[in-house]
């Protein structure tokens, strides 16, 4: 199993755990401060599940299993897949610290952080597609 695949899968498992933790907290605490925090975290938690877990699982396993790029470079351009890994993970981390309280005008630095989160995640997906596209082939 290639190194980047291992990183994708381990990071994915951590995001799955975080997403589950938010949902468990939301189920246990129906009111009060924790309930308000989990409510604010919910859109981020959805992305932890779908991007942090599902998408990273797809990216990591397809990089490992898909047909080789060439005999000399069987897994293609590794800088693209590492960019995908860092883009998605940095994007999700920035999302965690910027999205839940994005309406709070007291913290204007959160706006550029959320924009950076959006850009990082988009770059992550785009690099993944650029990386895997030439490996979608017969053999």
């Amino acid at each position: 199993m290639p190194r980047v695949t291992r990183w994708f899968l381990k990071s994915g498992l951590l995001f799955l755990l975080l997403a589950l933790a938010v949902e468990v907290a939301a189920a246990i605490f129906q009111s009060g401060t924790v309930a308000a925090i989990t409510l604010a975290l919910r859109p981020t938690a959805f992305h932890f599940f779908f991007v942090g877990w599902i998408a990273q699982l797809i990216m990591g396993v397809s990089h490992w299993f898909f047909p080789r790029y060439t005999r000399e470079k069987p897994r293609g351009n590794l800088s693209l897949i590492w960019s995908a890994f860092f883009g998605v993970n940095l994007g999700l981390f920035l999302r965690l610290i910027s999205e839940p309280v994005f309406w709070n005008a007291v913290y204007p630095w959160r706006t550029p952080l959320a924009i950076l989160a959006a850009v990082f995640q988009w770059v992550g997906f785009f690099c993944y597609v650029l990386h895997i596209w030439p490996r979608v082939k017969g053999k």
Partner: peptide, 12 residues
């Protein structure tokens, strides 16, 4: 992903 990035920017 493009729509998602646009939406997050739209939020802030």
């Amino acid at each position: 992903a493009t729509l998602g990035a646009m939406m997050l920017i739209g939020k802030v």
